[in-house]
């Protein structure tokens, strides 16, 4: 019996060693985007002549602001940094410092989150990495072994940059320095596919474009493969979706999918044409 006890003790030691595990990382909670995700599943209003002018006005005001501030490229750059960091880490890039680190490769295959801070380019003719003067963008992204978590988030802190000759600043809608955003990447998107498909954003930002200021408290989807926005146009108690690149190209409503032409100022679904 004594021998058996020794054997059990030995086995116990090995099992104890096998059970040594790391402390889970406490990820900061992501914003709740469940309502806006649900809203983007389907339109709730029809497109007809009564709402044509609303569509025209909304499409132009939203698309103009989004294109002027170059939001698609700004967001993609931040997300791409996170993706690149992960992929580089898996390939063994060594660029680490910190208090206690395990191998970057192993960490990025584990469970945790990363915070990307990008200094904005500034208003000068050449970009300058001056955080104090130019502000910055923050992006938080949680991850597991299989991919990034569905929702990323962050904000713009007095972020100054220029698109062509236009000077842009993104900051908080209350006049403070921090305007927030959150983005829905999709469920179970592998690391390598992150940022390649449509991403649904919710913004609460004050955008200054030249000498004009706009409150961008809106949700929209960016599809990088088509370089198009999809956003809601509210009419009465419901909404339908407008699709736009540089200009309006389509509408998805409860009465069907319309192709739109700004030149002819019409949206057409088969034989059904709406003019605006």
């Amino acid at each position: 019996m004594r021998d058996l006890a020794w054997a059990r003790g030995g086995l116990g030691l090995v099992v104890l060693g096998c059970q040594a595990q790391s402390e889970p990382v406490k990820k900061p909670p992501a914003p709740d985007m469940s309502q806006v995700i649900a809203d983007y599943q389907a339109p709730t209003a029809a497109l007809d002549a009564n709402v044509a002018q609303t569509l025209w006005d909304a499409a132009h005001s939203t698309v103009d602001v989004l294109n002027q501030i170059g939001i698609d490229q700004t967001m993609l750059d931040a997300i791409q940094s996170a993706v690149d960091e992960h992929l580089n880490g898996m390939q063994g890039t060594q660029s680490t410092e910190g208090d206690v680190a395990t191998t970057q490769q192993s960490l990025l295959q584990g469970d945790g989150y990363l915070k990307v801070t990008r200094i904005c380019n500034g208003w000068g003719p050449e970009p300058v990495p001056d955080k104090e003067a130019n502000g910055f963008i923050e992006l938080y992204a949680g991850f597991t072994e299989t991919g990034f978590d569905p929702v990323i988030w962050g904000g713009f802190s007095n972020c100054k940059y220029r698109v062509g000759d236009t000077l842009i600043e993104l900051k908080g809608t209350d006049g403070g320095g921090y305007g927030s955003f959150s983005g829905y990447l999709g469920e179970s998107v592998p690391f390598a596919q992150t940022g390649l498909g449509p991403t649904l954003y919710r913004f609460d930002v004050l955008a200054t474009v030249g000498d004009q200021s706009y409150t961008l408290a809106a949700d929209f989807e960016i599809d990088p493969s088509t370089v198009q926005f999809r956003f809601r146009v509210h009419v009465g108690q419901g909404y339908f979706f407008a699709l736009a690149g540089r200009e309006l190209v389509g509408v998805r409503a409860t009465n069907g999918d319309f192709g739109c032409s700004e030149m002819s100022r019409t949206c057409t679904n088969g034989t059904d044409t709406v003019s605006f």
Binding site: S22, A82, E85, S106, Q109, G110, G112, Y113, K115, E145
Partner: peptide, 9 residues
């Protein structure tokens, strides 16, 4: 880029 993680691979 700051990473906080526990490798559980």
């Amino acid at each position: 880029i700051e990473v906080k993680a526990a490798g559980l691979t």
